[in-house]
Write a protein that binds this DNA or RNA. Structure first.
Length: 549
RNA sequence: GCACCCGUAGCUCAACUGGAUAGAGCAUCAGACUUCGAAUCUGAGGGUUGGGGGUUCAAGUCCCUCCGGGUGUACCA
């Protein structure tokens, strides 16, 4: 419909010698203002030095939309042009929902664009903690949204199993191992204090006894065992949330393949790197940043910036033309350096989309749940899943805009009542399923789309509650596009809540199964449409849509 | 100090590239089940969008400034 109006109004504009560059349609906030509106007359009025309403008159006077689609065109307020759809068009388009079923909502504006979404990327030094949940879920949902809008998505996890943190992990496990042998052995100052370190150490002690007591300087075995354990733990947690990555990209491969040195040499050749105090510095000030940064430490080890730059360049070399990174706000400082570096290597960073989410705090009713990374008592993501369930983890972490601080209410997430927005949504789905089961018993062709389609007619579905529900359901594909375009999954949760609400309203106002068989069939079809949209939305969110609760 | 994010109803938050009367949920109050799931629905009250300036026909949204909160600001990742 938007495309139709875009074209029709666009033609009118050019016939009137107006520019149509700023022509947009949007859904008015207030239903009384019609189904779609445009502000084009007010924008044109300025350059034409005319009254906006007068410009709107000119446009509508020359506009003759198809009466089968558009019921009314009105000029309102300071010069908005409002369009109202015909009920016939609404009902006719709604048939698509039934025809497409589980594919309804999928569109292809991105046309197979090769897209890399990188997220989680936690190093294997411990289990995922509850705060990681936000980015785990955010990336999962964004990747789904991109896929539903035609991106060819590669889901990627970037990790480093070679740096200082890993050495520290090995040392920490070794220390716990010695303790378990009854030795008094100093625990590393910044060692990992978590209980899991003791578990790993205990497992090693059980297998090897004291045979590894004198491992000398090399704690490689301990490090390896730690890495295996941590990765297994992380992957298991992700699995519980249905999160899968296509590629695990090891930072180490950037060294072994010489990609790191290549970048250094290129920076040197471009005069963007210099030596000072035994370290190699990136001339970031040359790239418009505040200060120069070390890329190779005086010890000879690169800082994280260098591999990050090389890694991003590799993504482009691998053929991706959209690169999406998801970071927590605590990593925000690294981004400008990395982008500047990539740009200096000759790549367009406008195709790098960095999504930064703000921090999460957990509350249980009135109480704030304290969590400290350094302390031994870390609330893991696994424990959060145990506590509230995978569905609530999915829903609650994307419920709010990424760039605002998120308050995760554990008590609310557990609550099985109308207070919990997730339950409200799932209840709507279960309720529809229940009605459809009942309808099936009565002999309605619930599973037979071809048999239901003819009943979908505007002579039958004409109550306000029915038409409003239909219109809302028809917004679904565009809603997904706009969520994907803005990387804003939280808007999908709001939308789905509205769908559930519109359905409950319809259920309340209109009896589905009544005396009139053809009307009942039409309403069964409408139930099925609502169920389809809720189901598809839940699929994108990674939330289950239960048949019964 | 500097950079980024936030400040909207008692609480948690929406508001699509600036649009019309700033919206939901929870909480509070008042109502609705002999009928397909009351885990539902209907209604009411609740606001100077942190303060002040500016741009615009139009500002919660853009610009400047001040105040308050968060996250960073490493030869850690």
């Amino acid at each position: 419909m938007k495309q139709y109006l875009q074209k029709a109004v666009g033609e009118v504009l050019s016939s009137l010698h107006y520019s149509s560059g700023a022509l947009f349609f949007e859904k008015p906030k207030v239903a009384a203002h019609g189904d779609l509106t445009t502000n084009i007359a007010m924008l044109l009025a300025k350059e034409a030095k005319k009254n906006p309403r007068q410009v709107a008159q000119e446009i509508t006077g020359a506009l003759h939309p198809d009466p089968a689609l558009v019921a009314a065109v009105e000029i309102a307020g300071p010069g908005f042009i409002n369009f109202r759809f015909t009920p016939g068009w609404v009902v006719e388009s709604a048939k698509e929902i039934l025809r497409q079923g589980s594919a309804f909502g999928k569109t292809n504006p991105a046309n197979g664009r090769l897209t890399n979404v990188e997220w989680v990327s936690a190093n294997p030094t411990g289990p995922l903690h509850s705060g990681h949940g936000r980015q785990v879920i955010l990336g999962y949902t964004v990747a789904n949204l991109l896929e539903w809008t035609g991106h060819a998505v590669t889901r990627e996890y970037y990790f480093n199993n070679a740096g200082n943190q890993m050495l520290n992990l090995g040392e920490s496990i070794y220390a716990r191992y010695r303790e378990s042998l009854g030795d008094s052995y100093a625990f590393p100052e910044n060692g990992y204090a978590g209980e899991y370190i003791k578990d790993i150490a205990a497992a090693i002690a059980a297998e090897h006894g004291d045979a590894l007591r004198e491992s000398g300087e090399d704690k490689k075995y301990f490090r390896q065992r730690g890495e295996e354990w941590c990765f297994a733990s992380i992957k298991k947690t992700l699995e519980r949330l249905g999160v899968r990555h296509d590629v695990y990209y090891n930072e180490d491969s950037l060294y072994s393949s010489g990609k790191i040195n290549e970048v250094i040499e290129e920076f040197r050749a471009k005069g963007l790197a210099y030596d000072l105090d035994g370290a190699v510095w990136l001339k970031a000030t040359e790239l418009g940043l505040e200060q120069d940064r070390v890329i190779v430490k005086s010890t000879g080890e690169p800082t994280y910036r260098l591999p990050d730059i090389a890694y991003h360049r590799e993504k482009f070399r691998r053929g991706f033309d959209l690169v999406v990174d998801i970071f927590g706000a605590d990593h925000i400082a690294t981004i400008p350096d990395v982008l500047a570096g990539v740009r200096a290597l000759g790549y367009e960073t406008e195709n790098v989309k960095v999504i930064i989410h703000q921090m999460v705090s957990f509350v249980e009713g009135e109480e704030v749940v304290k969590m400290s990374k350094r302390s031994a008592k870390v609330y893991t993501l696994d424990e959060l899943i145990d506590e509230v369930g995978a569905d609530a983890v999915h829903y609650f972490f994307v419920m709010r805009s990424a760039n605002t601080h998120l308050e995760f209410d554990i008590e609310l997430a557990k609550e099985q009542s109308d207070k919990n927005p997730l339950y409200y949504l799932q209840y709507a789905h279960a309720r529809i399923a229940s009605i459809l089961r009942f309808a099936q018993e009565q002999g309605y062709p619930v599973d037979d789309v071809a048999a239901l389609l003819p009943s979908v007619a505007n002579a039958l579905l004409k109550e306000d509650a029915e038409v409003n529900l239909l219109k809302l359901l028809l917004d679904f594909p565009e809603m997904i596009q706009s969520c994907a375009f803005g990387y804003e999954p939280h808007r999908l949760t709001t939308y789905l809540r509205e769908v559930a609400e519109a359905f409950h309203r319809f259920y309340h106002d209109c009896r589905v199964l009544g005396e009139d068989k053809s009307l009942s069939t039409a309403r069964v079809a409408l139930c099925l449409m609502a169920k389809t949209v809720i189901f598809n939305g839940c699929t994108i969110l990674g939330v289950s849509a239960p048949e019964k609760m």
